[in-house]
Write a protein that binds this DNA or RNA. Sequence first.
DNA 1: AGTTCTTATTTTGGATACATTAATGCGAAT
DNA 2: ATTCGCATTAATGTATCCAAAATAAGAACT
Lengths: 263, 263
Amino acid sequence: MRIIRLESNILRDMEPIIYPLCVMELRSTTTASEIAGHLRERILAGEFAPGTRMHQVQLSEMLGISRTPIREALAHLANQGLLIYEPNRGYAVRAFSVEEIRAAFEVRARLEALACGLCARNGLTKPVLARLKACLAEGDALLSKGFLDPDDLAPYRAMNVEFHETILQKSGNPFLGDFVRQCHNVPLASDRVFVWKDYGIITRSHDDHHRILHAIETRDSERAEALMREHVVYASLVLLRMLDEVKAAPKADDSPLRPRRIA
Amino acid sequence: MRIIRLESNILRDMEPIIYPLCVMELRSTTTASEIAGHLRERILAGEFAPGTRMHQVQLSEMLGISRTPIREALAHLANQGLLIYEPNRGYAVRAFSVEEIRAAFEVRARLEALACGLCARNGLTKPVLARLKACLAEGDALLSKGFLDPDDLAPYRAMNVEFHETILQKSGNPFLGDFVRQCHNVPLASDRVFVWKDYGIITRSHDDHHRILHAIETRDSERAEALMREHVVYASLVLLRMLDEVKAAPKADDSPLRPRRIA
DNA sequence: AGTTCTTATTTTGGATACATTAATGCGAAT
DNA sequence: ATTCGCATTAATGTATCCAAAATAAGAACT
């Protein structure tokens, strides 16, 4: 097979500065990426049972588009680890064992801890610190009632995501954010999809946030790393405990899923 | 948009044990995946300059196939982080800064260290230990000449890959292997694509392998983790030093790229 | 001469049609 | 009754075609 060097578009390569408008957040998202996001949500929500085959024609009829963007979306999801692909057999929803969920948390704990330590080591700018402080303040406000209002759960979750995402983004290491995001693709192993309903545990978790930001502000990277690691590890323990309880008593499906203190 | 639950193939879901032959390594790879692997190698080899647009028609004519599998392969590579995708603009070879290469090593060091510590903590089976010992023996043999034969470089690299891959696979955490493999997709940041040509450094690196296996055998997870972390961190330092030297003297393009001792 | 608007070409995104491979069902033989 | 084998069916993989968007080129204007 011959070796041919593709010629590059000189203008775009050399002077990207003259195309500022093109770089803006136009986001003329293609339908394939929309489908991918759509299916991603539904898979993470547990709508498709693990092992379910994702038939392309079926999906195309269901969504009213042709197979081409479907295929692209499925390939994308397979690369993200949500689907399993076998040549000439198609895609199927990946089944995650409890052990894999634990493994995802284990890696996530290390990566987020590293990101947190890097933030402390390198220092954050004042606007970023202000953003994190705003997260703390919002959490304080939501928890000030002394109990957890179900209506406050969604905003608390959003705040939690922003706190963690900000630290990841400002760590200066783009791979940390990428990989942690992949960990969140494991169903149930994500703060984004699920959050505890126990006021005590959430309060403690939010107190961790306070300490984490303090460690970052005082540039104590060791402490910041240790705090974040424990913060995530404990979340995994709570979740795994809940999964155990659910498995032990699958009949009470609508039970409040109250986690108990692990110690 | 209606919600339709896809029916799953009961047989495959419930009794995977009765399909042992299907699970075997048939690998009837589709052309799209072949193309993806092919392009991946060429990109990592630096054949396509960073920023180069990957025109689909151009590639399809070059490779003698239609655009469809090309598109699938490009999407795959973009998901792996080798290409950048912009809607309606296509794919371009991603440019990695030195800082990103360093970041990839930083994450890789932590992840491989964790994998190594887990192997020590959980213990490895005798056949796996034997495989690692075989790697050590092969390295010993290749380095016994007292200098590095260029012909031995490829087998040494293969041995090195197997040593690291074995530890990752046997760590019991599948995400570690996945993420480390993604780190290897960063050009130059991979043992697989590039290996040092300095006998002293390779000897020291191989000595690390000896100590790492010793730590695993003695179930000293702390030591195993620390050793592997330093093992990878030092590799990054050597590479970054080389990149600095290349950048400092870009004229001598065919220079031997000899790294110096860093201390 | 430089700038801007319009037009033409190129390239990507999506739809459809065809080829190939795996799964299924039926039937016969053991 | 079970199993093996063949034919059928269905699903995936690939090629081609059309539409839309972006880029490039050119003409008109300041």
